[in-house]
Design a protein around this nucleic acid. Structure first.
Lengths: 236, 236
DNA sequence: TGACAATGACTGACCAGTCAGTCATAATGA
DNA sequence: TCATTATGACTGACTGGTCAGTCATTGTCA
């Protein structure tokens, strides 16, 4: 019921921990040293980070229902009980994980440096997305949301509010900019910003399911897609 | 191990079954009456169909791991043991379900009447797809494949072989036709047929996750998408 | 009546969540 | 500075419940 209100981990110095095992400086008064990483709070934060990392891995590999917390604990190098010091239960753990995993995406997405043409902006954005999401484990998180969303309305809601609606709003603005400047012919595109990102979504899914059957050059595909919207690309 | 090879259910008269409980006519010779459905084979087929139907429902709602066969049995109006007369175990049941659920899709997809322009053909095809898949439970099956695919390589493989590669091949052919006839400007599109279907995939996902937040007119979206490919549509 | 289909109580493995006990670290005081 | 006490993070054996799969019994058709 009552959620623990640990603050999220700030520092994450992993290697130093082992190095400092032998002796712990007894600076009783000053909490001025964030680096050496050996006091209680920091260790706890590190463990939490390890749990989060391990849980992410397991959830991605097996889905929510099939993931065993015993396995998560083992992977994190921690006893099962420890998990419950950081999370109330499996379900809220899952939800919290998805939430925190998504947040950094928003940061990257919303910052859209307005330099250059609309096409350039979108191209840059798409390259970032493909590089940071499609080709990494974050893509799996998106797949995870698609997979578990219907069973976790809270997650679907959160994702819609924080990512989808904002992202689409930003893209709509970009499209309108492009229409105004004459770069984009098709005015109707602004009504369906989903069309612009659709290839990226498909790339994520393809990556998870079919990459080993037929690899897909997401960047190149997206360029062709942009050619459809902006007209033939000049040969680079 | 050994798969049972019952043929798929043909007749499905559900209400009549209950109505006919009291007395069963003894027409031993003539199998000319498909409706009353009371001999052994037919009853068995009906039960199997009920199980398949119920299992589909449960798997879509909960995913593979979280689905209880007790619930499937209850929903199908059957004892749990009966399920094991038709399927070896939960896993092979799931795989077989997905396979048989997908087959009808192929039928609908491959039949592409070549009348009219390429755009018309694609438009007709898309309308069918959206009507038959996006707006129905078959869309959920696609989502289910996305969700469970990584854990069931056999399913991902099957799906790629039987649906994705064939579908994309057909679409590639259509695109090349369009390029040859001058309807499609962008030759490169043939390299990424995924681009043509991407909006449909996105529509499926949107439907499952976000429809209640923001309904999406898939048909209209697809038309705008085709306008990008074929040029502005003439006002109907 | 014989053959086969259907049943559902039962088994055993599995797993989320608990909690009494341990021990490294922090606090206190002399 | 060192000894003593207090703290609370961490552990992992344990519990209660769940559920896939089985099989002896019962029902039904030909």
């Amino acid at each position: 019921m009552t959620k623990r209100t640990k603050r999220s981990p700030r520092s994450s110095s992993e290697t130093t921990t082992r190095a400092a095992t032998a002796r712990v400086p007894k600076v009783a008064s000053a909490p001025l040293r964030p680096k050496p990483a050996a006091n209680r709070a920091e260790k706890s934060a590190e463990r939490r980070a390890a749990i989060v990392e391990a849980a992410m891995e397991e959830f991605i590999a097996r889905g929510f229902a099939a993931t065993r917390l015993d396995d998560v604990a083992k992977r994190a190098g921690v006893a099962k009980g420890t998990i419950y010091l950081h999370f109330t239960d499996k379900e809220s753990m899952f939800e919290e994980l998805i939430r925190t995993a998504i947040v950094p995406l928003i940061g990257n997405i919303t910052m859209a440096p307005p330099g250059g043409s609309v096409r350039e902006t979108i191209e840059r954005f798409a390259a970032t997305f493909i590089h940071e999401v499609v080709s990494t484990r974050r893509g799996d998180i998106i797949r995870l949301i698609v997979a578990e969303g219907p069973r976790f309305p809270a997650i679907a809601d959160f994702y819609f509010r924080e990512v989808v609606s904002r992202g689409l709003a930003g893209i709509t603005a970009l499209i309108q900019l492009g229409v105004a400047s004459g770069e984009i012919r098709q005015k109707e595109l602004a009504r369906f910003p989903q069309l612009l990102v659709a290839p990226a979504i498909v790339a994520v899914i393809w990556q998870s399911l079919f990459a080993r059957h037929a690899p897909l050059d997401a960047i190149e595909m997206f360029k062709v897609h942009l050619d459809l919207i902006f007209g033939e690309r000049r040969t680079t």
